[in-house]
Nucleic acid binder design. Structure first.
Lengths: 204, 204, 204, 204
DNA sequence: CATGAATGAGCATTCATTCAT
DNA sequence: GATGAATGAATGCTCATTCAT
């Protein structure tokens, strides 16, 4: 995998990963073949293996990259002085982020993330990445909750660690709404999610 | 002495579905071939098609059957006089249901249900079943919430429909914990889930 | 294959053959499965083998039965005193026989007969039947031609045997018109066929 | 040094088609599997699909290619100044062409062409090709007949279009002789075919 | 006679991966 | 770096046939 120009190599890897993401969003893990990815990336099937050892390596890299974004949001939240308000307003961004961005609309992204989670249930390599990422996000969340508790904004009786686990799982759960009830209003659901989180965390 | 016995036919179908479920639990939707199901069911590859029209018909039947169970629990809840308490105690059953039953342990079942949801994201036939089931469960839940509101046990300001959607999604979300944090204590998580639901629904 | 009532046995065989013919007409040799025949005949797959040893036995019996009809027409012709006129008027019947009868319309029958001929090209059992039938028809035709020659109605210089072979092949050839030119007018084609035969056989 | 070489690709396609033709000649449309073709062509089962989209695409290409040859003969005829004589002498070539050439002996070719016609009776894609080819050949034949009529070599009362249809069908009919009467003398039959055509077309 | 459960070889096709150029 | 030819195991599915009842 040595290359004369490691920068170009990494760039090309990035392009292929982006192409792979587009395929995954369109046809899912199951429905995406290496041939599809090659066509989308505009390279030959043999050439794919110059950049990745296997299809799994692509999925692995994609998962890793996909989760990096999630971290950023949480890191941002940390800086706020009012923990609860910050978390709530962070969710507001989701209300408007239903339009397409580079990675597709919110529902598509949700589906792919769910697919990644399911994949992790069978595939140890993916599971490892998911867990490492979960640990990072959770530690940010725990710290965030503890700060809120110190400031009297969050119920001090809650175990920050368990509460963080639950909050994360609640966020995951939101991703199934688009599947179960495709016609329900996302803005309304997020509004209620804000209420739910607020009531759960608020001191009595 | 005409047999024709539709009972035996249905029984065999059931056996095959159970075998298919075992395969799914072991290797997932993606990883299960018709050959695997046949081997597990102890029948020949051709014979499978005596009972099901296609692999998708098996998956469809399996999904339908798998979701029937979920309904029962909700129907039971309805009978209680204290809505919130009923929902909470229903969750208590989950704390102990982590041991193996006919369908495998709780985590395996969760994973398979998640796979069904993901499958529904790409496969309209499965989506239809999921949505029909969601509608049923949700209407039970809505009725349940409204009864609670009438009795003053649940916050009357909450829109029962949106709250039901959210509660369902929270339940789905719980299924990812086993993937993200396999070592976290299920009993503790459910305890906090009870707090979360209780605080969300209680009147102020 | 012994049966208590050989008459009923033969009757049932006939019914099955008729059902098989209907399948063949609809979906062709290639496209007809034993299951199709059983469904059409209203019997179970196992029962088929009570009446026929194999699928090939059905095809064989069907071919034999199908060709019996062709003989009748030629036998009728023989009785006429004017050979050429008889042959020509026999063809007139074809002009009107394009409507459906028990065996389907003319084009469908033609296609099935062509399929039988093609089948004979690979399948010795069918070939044997076809050849036996050809011999019978041809001997009728040869006799017919010779009678015509004696009566001065047919060119005496023609070798009756070779001429008969050619006439038979010309009749076979007519069966491809429906495939090559489905929109051409059958009545017009038969009219020209009459001219062709008349000119070929007439004394100079 | 980009290859991409479409020439080699086309060559390989040709090789596979030739192998497919050999299989068809040996075991017929019905009896030829993609595995047979691959074995005959010396390639792996997967590789076949690098050159053809499906088995039907092979059959289609084969049919198209197989019929191209027929055109050439007719085109040649057109150049002659004596229409009838040209057609007759063209048939003479068939007398000697009974030995094997690249595509097998005359009888095998006839059988495969008959199979193509039968296939066309059920398979619209093949039918389309057959009909396009029929139109081409027929228009050549019609022009040929009209030229002959202008020169007084062919009966001017004959409708060139209907006569062409009939002549084509007569040619098709010749292909069944090898099946019905494998022992009959091809040279003798063609001799009589020449008489038949000559008498049919000659002016009174 | 009659059923339909059961078989297993065979089919067209897909796809991750390798390799010569 | 880059191509696309080539592989071969695997997949979902069909079908003529057998057999216990």
């Amino acid at each position: 995998m040595r290359t004369l120009d490691p920068v170009k190599h990494a760039e090309k890897r990035g392009e292929i990963l982006l192409a792979a993401w587009r395929c995954l969003a369109k046809t899912g893990f199951r429905g995406t073949s290496t041939a599809d990815i090659c066509k989308e990336a505009g390279i030959s099937p043999g050439h794919l293996y110059h950049y990745f050892d296997s299809k799994e390596a692509i999925v692995t890299a994609l998962t890793a990259r996909g989760l990096e974004g999630a971290e950023a949001g949480f890191t941002e939240m940390m800086k706020s002085s009012n923990a609860l308000a910050a978390m709530i307003s962070e969710l507001d961004r989701h209300k408007t982020r239903h339009k397409t961005d580079k990675h597709g609309d919110y529902r598509t992204i949700s589906l792919v993330v769910l697919e990644m989670l399911v994949e992790a249930g069978r595939n140890p390599a993916i599971a490892k990445i998911i867990r490492a990422n979960t640990r990072k996000i959770k530690s940010l969340l725990v710290e965030f909750l503890k700060t809120g508790q110190e400031r009297g904004q969050i119920d001090p009786k809650l175990d920050a660690d368990v509460a963080a686990t639950l909050l994360l799982s609640v966020m995951d759960g939101m991703k199934t709404i688009g599947i179960r009830e495709p016609k329900s209003d996302p803005a309304r659901n997020i509004e209620y999610l804000q209420i739910l989180i607020s009531r759960f965390l608020s001191p009595p």
